[in-house]
Design a protein around this nucleic acid. Sequence first.
DNA 1: AGGCCCTCCTGTAAGC
DNA 2: TGCTTACAGGAGGGCC
Length: 271
Amino acid sequence: MPELPEVETTRQGIAPLVENQTIAKIVIHQAKLRWPIPGSLRQKLPGQSIRSVTRRAKYLLFNTSAGTLLIHLGMSGSLRLVPQTTPRDTHDHFELVLTNRNSLRLRDPRRFGAVLWAGEQPEQHKLLAGLGPEPLEHHFTGDYLYRCSRRRTRAIRDFLLDGHVVAGIGNIYANEALFTAGIRPTRPAGRISRDRYQKLVRAIRSTLRRAIKAGGTSIRDFRQADGRPGYFQHSLKIYGKKGEPCPKCGQKIRAVKLTNRTVFFCTHCQL
DNA sequence: AGGCCCTCCTGTAAGC
DNA sequence: TGCTTACAGGAGGGCC
């Protein structure tokens, strides 16, 4: 999926075009996503003005005075703003039409995404309450990761994917940051020193910032709000590079399954 | 409580 | 060539 940089890229593309615009109508083409899209949105949203578009973890929050609409892109989702007259794609499942005749469309071939109503206190919504810190904010530190990883036996890659520990990191950026920090993805989280966690936090931050600047990573489905792919896939150092030479030492990059998802690493550079 | 596995889908590519 | 199988950027829920 769209991980944090892809969701943030989408937010930055969409926000200036929809903020202060009024919602004309909601069109649901396929309600069966990860959870059913509530039909009540058709009554709740028309007439509302979009005050702001914010992001928490991999969720986009469309804030109106009546409450907040949550959109999650799942594994294959993307949001585009197009003129209402643009022909609909097979996988466009949800549509938010503005009074200026533009339409915000959710395309999601695999349908793992979600469109949900979070009411007036979105931070208390079940899916948002209990999320860990945003990795680009200041309270996300090496000390924090070090403290909450003590006695944890799971692999550091899985620890980073846990949204209750830190929000928004997925498999691509976990792999990339661990390579930059020189940490083996399979290493138990509880067996990494404070110093190495500080290095890891710097690696996570720089990787995410660079990916946002590049418009995210487009391996297959992801598109920015204007339809262009991101280009961070050209900057990936380790993810998807099985059998290729390590960019630091030239040794063959290895790939193994860890908790059902692939990790890529260099046995020489990552310990 | 923590950690691991399954599941929801479609599309693509590899393998035979 | 064509069929079958594996795998993919997520993550909640259930189970041990």
